[in-house]
């Protein structure tokens, strides 16, 4: 891992913790003291906080408090009411409760894929509550999958072998510049999740539509897209950029759907964006 490993510097080690939000147990990874503010990182469909393990130490060293929760039903966070969530907005509202529980003051939001959808949704519904938004591989409207394919996945028998499919499909979602070891890690991360949770996340992604609300986002926002990402089109992100006042758009050559895990330079891209806006 590229993160700090000095045993005496506890503030710069990633550590995990649990807390109860609205009666439900949530897990998160955390690093840093937060002298420069907080960054909340939201993972992709079916995944967990582990996706952000290369990103957290970088901003921890810069003086940020960086937090990466597992969404309900993912990683070590329990499922709410034992039902998968199928709504981007519902995820966003849960994270708003988490921010309150942690007493975070106007954190930067960073999210990728459904995490990107979630942070845009939080930005549109609570425009004054954030310092800035970093939205990767997502947009205000993403209809990537045929609905009948996802509907089949509500039952394991509807998409047999979904773990294997996800494993190989994930490799194709990574950029051609991603180191092989990182691709293997992302494939493993994607494979270890519950396919039911993944399917419901993708249903949420497919059906989410922020088109009529994107203009409400009122904080500095950067949209990041890996040029090799086949999960969302350049045009979809460009339309989102046009809809959000002042939004920036950064394209990363050789990068795919998982910039924070594939590409160490992603952290510098975010640092540069925050620097341009006085953070």
């Amino acid at each position: 891992m590229s993160g700090p490993d000095r045993p005496s510097d506890k503030a710069l080690e990633i550590h995990g913790r649990y807390l109860t939000v609205d009666g439900h147990r949530i897990y998160l990874d955390e690093i840093g003291s937060g002298g420069r503010g907080a960054i909340l990182c939201v993972h992709t469909a079916g995944m967990s906080s582990l996706e952000w393990r290369f990103f957290l130490p970088y901003f921890g060293r810069l003086g940020y408090r960086v937090l990466a929760p597992d969404l309900p039903g993912h990683g070590k966070s329990l499922l709410r009411q034992w039902k998968p969530i199928e709504s981007i907005h519902e995820y966003g509202e849960i994270l708003c409760q988490l921010v309150q529980a942690l007493n975070l003051s106007r954190p930067v939001l960073a999210g990728c894929s459904i995490g990107g959808d979630i942070v845009l949704d939080m930005g549109a519904h609570h425009p004054q509550d954030w310092a800035a938004i970093v939205c990767c591989e997502a947009g205000m409207r993403n209809q990537t999958f045929p609905e009948d394919f996802l509907e089949r996945g509500r039952e394991d028998a509807g998409i047999p072998g979904f773990h294997e499919f996800t494993y190989y499909r994930t490799a194709a979602l990574c950029g051609r510049g991603a180191p092989a070891e990182r691709v293997r890690e992302i494939q493993w991360l994607r494979r270890r999740g519950d396919p039911k949770i993944m399917i419901h996340d993708l249903l949420a992604w497919n059906r989410h539509d922020l088109t009529s609300m994107a203009s409400r986002i009122a904080v500095p926002t950067v949209l990041v897209r890996g040029a090799d990402d086949s999960g969302i089109s350049q045009d979809a992100v460009e339309q989102t950029r046009k809809a959000i006042p002042g939004a920036e758009f950064v394209v990363l050559p050789g990068v795919g759907h998982f910039p924070m895990t594939e590409y160490d330079g992603f952290a510098q891209v975010v640092e540069s964006f925050l620097g341009r806006h006085g953070f």
Partner: peptide
């Protein structure tokens, strides 16, 4: 296959099961 540049016909469940 996802973009339908190559079409999959027949038993799509078996196709999924046999991804590898």
């Amino acid at each position: 296959t996802g973009s339908k540049k190559i079409l999959v016909e027949g038993n799509l469940l078996e196709f999924m099961r046999l991804t590898k």
